[in-house]
Computed example of a mutant assay.
Amino acid sequence: MTPDAEGAVHDPELMAAVADLGDALRGLVDASVRTTVPPAELREVAAAVRAARGRLAARTRPATQLPVLDDLLAFRRVYNPVTGVGSALAPPIRFREDADGVVAETSFGLAYEGPPGFLHGGMSGLVVDQALGVAAIRAGLWGMTARLELDYRRPVPLETPVVLRAAVAENAGRKVVVTGTVALAATPGTPLVEARGVFVLPREELRATYFAEITDASGRHAPPSRPTDATAPAGGAA
């Protein structure tokens, strides 16, 4: 077992295999939206993909059980649709802390296209919501999105380096206000998308209801929490 950058222990062989499969699936998705091969080839590939799906489906987990590699206190979610290394949907985006909050660089391929040549507006909302949430977590806070406001200043071009930034603007107990931007890496001072999110930590009784059935891979009850939450294990870190 090996600790990651957050100090959370994981099986390095399993992590490498999950990341390898995720990378292969993202490559498949990208190729599937670019290909111009004839119908017969498409059908052969579809059959091969279904066969692969059958192998993966031989052993599965219920939706209420966290993957064995996940660690909620370390904010490690391997199948997160924005940051998960094992997700076929995620770019994936890797955030890091900076002086103001968090920052990440990425680019978006054709699988995320909305208007021709540009990022789908819903995808902008997805990645920005994630960025704001990561900024809150990195500040030692946690909450669920209660409000998300986006101003689309200009379209986000595909296959072009962009930079995402987010920082906590206000911390009022259970409510946290976070702001963020998406900009071209070449002109980071000119936002293409501006966002403001309100994250609220649900009351204890609501959390008990929302996450009553969530367990870790061993079957132990494992609801999300934060360092300032009395339900967090001693010494835990978000």
Rank of each mutant, 00 (worst) to 15 (best):
V33D: 02
A88R: 08
T215P: 00
D71I: 02
D98P: 03
V33A: 02
D100T: 04
A135S: 11
A47M: 10
A172Y: 04
G122P: 07
D70A: 09
T60H: 08
L69Y: 07
P155H: 06
E113S: 13
L126P: 00
D11T: 09
D98L: 03
G197Q: 06
V163S: 04
V163W: 05
T64C: 01
L184K: 09
V200C: 01
P224H: 06
T190V: 13
A208H: 13
M144E: 15
T228G: 15
E44N: 03
L206N: 10
G189N: 11
E194A: 13
S218L: 11
P12H: 06
E6V: 00
V102D: 02
L56K: 08
R96H: 15
L69T: 06
A185W: 05
V9Y: 01
A57F: 00
M15F: 14
T209I: 08
A111V: 07
A185P: 04
N171E: 15
R76W: 05
A88V: 01
G219Q: 11
L132P: 07
D100E: 13
A217D: 05
A111H: 08
P115E: 09
A167D: 10
L42K: 14
A90K: 00
D30Q: 09
P115Y: 12
R50L: 13
G122L: 09
L158F: 03
T215Y: 10
T64N: 02
R50A: 15
V18D: 05
V29P: 00
E194Q: 12
D216L: 03
L158N: 07
P3F: 02
P62G: 14
S218E: 14
A24L: 12
E204P: 04
L150V: 02
R196C: 11
V128K: 01
I214H: 01
V29G: 03
G84D: 05
L25T: 10
G197M: 08
F211D: 13
D229F: 03
G235S: 06
T209L: 11
L192R: 04
P115L: 11
V134M: 02
E194W: 01
P116A: 13
A185C: 07
T228S: 15
V9A: 13
A212P: 00
D11H: 10
E159I: 00
V45K: 08
T35C: 11
V18W: 06
L132E: 05
V33W: 04
G133D: 13
A48V: 02
L28C: 09
Q65H: 03
H10L: 15
A131G: 13
P188K: 07
A139S: 14
A8H: 14
